[in-house]
C-alpha cells in the first residue's frame, strides 16, 4: 500500500513508521511538483524520487525489464519524452513549483513505458540534492502482515501527518469492478458476434460450393463413386481452404489489434498489445469448428443429391 504524508517530512520518520504493527517491507519516496521544459515544449508533472532498493515499486521498460534508477539523472516515461521532444542523453530544464522554486537542469538517462499518466523519476538522493535539502520524504510504499492489517489501519489513522493511504489491492479491485468489467463484457459480446459471423461465412461458402458443383458431384455419384468419396472431395477442398485461410486470418487479426492499440491511447491511458498463443489458437479453433460443423451439414447435402434430376438434364 502507499502512504502519503500531508507535507514533506524528514527521512528519519521511517523509524517511526516501522513501529506500526504488521509493517513488513517499507520503501520511501519523495514527490516534487515541477515543470519540465525543453525549449518551447513543457509539461507540468510530478517527479518521484525513489530509493535505491526497490521491490515494491518498479520501473519497467518496453520489454518489461526492470529499469534501475541511476544515481543522477532523470528517468522519463517515453510518452512524456515524446511530448517534450527529448531523448536519452538530452538535457532538460526543471522548474520546481514548490518551496524555494529553484530552476535547475537535469539529464534524461533512461526511458520507461508506463501506461498511465506522464511521469519522471529520479534517485531520491539526487532529488534531495536538486532541492538543496537534507533527506526528506513525501510518503512510503509498504507491505503489511495480513493478520495485523486492521490494527495497522487503526494506527495509521492516528498519525496526524499521514494524509492518504492507498491500498493497491482495493484500487485494483475497484478498477476491475468498474472499468475493466464493463470493457470485458463489451468485448465478450463482440466476440460472440465475431463467432457467429465467422460461422456464417464458412457455412455460406460451403453451401455455395455445394450448390455450384451439385451437378458435377451428382454425376460422379452416378458414375459410381461412393458417397464418402464424393463428399470427401468437397470437404477436402473446404478443409484445405480453411487451413490456408487461418494464417492469413491471424495476420489480419494482428494488424487490426495493432491498429486499435495505436489509436486508443490518450495521455492518461495507454494499453499495450498483448497477444498470446492461446489467442491465435482460440481464433483458429472457432474457425475450424465452424468449418467442421458446416462440413457435416454440407455432407448431408451431398448424400441427398438428386441423382435422377442430374441424369435427366439436357446436354
Amino acid at each position: 500500500m502507499t502512504v502519503n504524508f500531508v507535507e514533506t517530512v524528514p527521512a528519519s520518520v521511517v523509524a517511526s513508521l516501522k513501529q506500526i504493527s504488521g509493517v513488513r517491507q517499507i520503501e520511501t519516496f519523495r514527490a516534487v511538483p515541477v515543470r519540465l521544459r525543453n525549449g518551447q515544449y513543457s509539461r507540468q508533472i510530478g517527479i518521484t524520487g525513489l530509493s535505491e532498493r526497490r521491490d515494491l515499486f518498479r520501473l519497467l521498460d518496453k520489454d518489461e525489464s526492470i529499469v534501475e534508477v541511476p544515481r543522477s539523472g532523470l528517468v522519463v516515461s517515453s510518452h512524456l519524452a515524446g511530448i517534450l521532444h527529448v531523448g536519452v542523453g538530452d538535457e532538460i530544464t526543471i522548474e520546481v513549483l514548490e518551496k524555494e522554486r529553484p530552476v535547475r537542469k537535469g539529464r534524461v538517462v533512461a526511458l520507461v513505458d508506463d501506461y498511465s499518466g506522464s511521469s519522471a523519476y529520479m534517485h531520491i538522493e539526487a532529488l534531495n540534492r536538486l532541492m538543496r535539502e537534507p533527506p526528506a520524504i513525501s510518503g512510503a510504499f509498504m507491505t503489511l502482515d495480513s493478520l495485523l492489517e486492521n490494527r495497522a489501519f487503526e494506527e495509521l489513522k492516528e498519525v496526524p501527518f499521514i494524509g492518504a493511504v492507498n491500498l493497491q489491492k482495493a484500487a485494483f479491485e475497484g478498477f476491475m469492478e468498474s472499468f475493466a468489467e464493463n470493457m470485458l463484457q463489451f468485448q465478450f459480446i463482440n466476440a460472440i458476434f465475431a463467432c457467429v459471423i465467422a460461422f456464417g461465412v464458412v457455412y455460406n461458402s460451403a453451401r455455395i460450393a455445394l450448390s455450384e458443383r451439385s451437378r458435377e458431384l451428382a454425376t460422379l455419384r452416378v458414375i459410381g463413386f461412393t458417397k464418402g468419396e464424393v463428399s470427401g472431395i468437397l470437404l477436402g477442398e473446404l478443409a484445405l481452404l480453411t487451413s490456408v485461410a487461418i494464417p492469413f486470418g491471424w495476420l489480419i487479426g494482428y494488424g487490426m489489434s495493432w491498429g486499435m492499440v495505436k489509436t486508443l491511447p490518450t495521455e492518461h491511458f495507454r494499453i499495450p498489445l498483448v497477444l498470446s498463443s492461446s489467442t491465435y489458437g482460440f481464433a483458429a479453433l472457432v474457425i475450424a469448428s465452424a468449418a467442421i460443423v458446416s462440413g457435416l451439414i454440407v455432407r448431408r447435402g451431398v448424400d441427398r443429391l438428386d441423382l435422377v434430376s442430374v441424369l435427366k438434364s439436357s446436354e
Binding site: 478443409a239 498470446s276 479453433l285 475450424a288
Partner: peptide, 20 residues
C-alpha cells in the same frame, strides 16, 4: 491429407484451450 488436417485441429485445440 486427413491425418494432417486432424493434426492441425488438434493443435488449435491445444493452443486455444490451454490455461494461460
Amino acid at each position: 491429407f486427413w491425418a494432417l488436417i486432424g493434426l492441425l485441429v488438434a493443435g488449435f485445440v491445444h493452443f486455444g484451450l490451454k490455461p494461460k
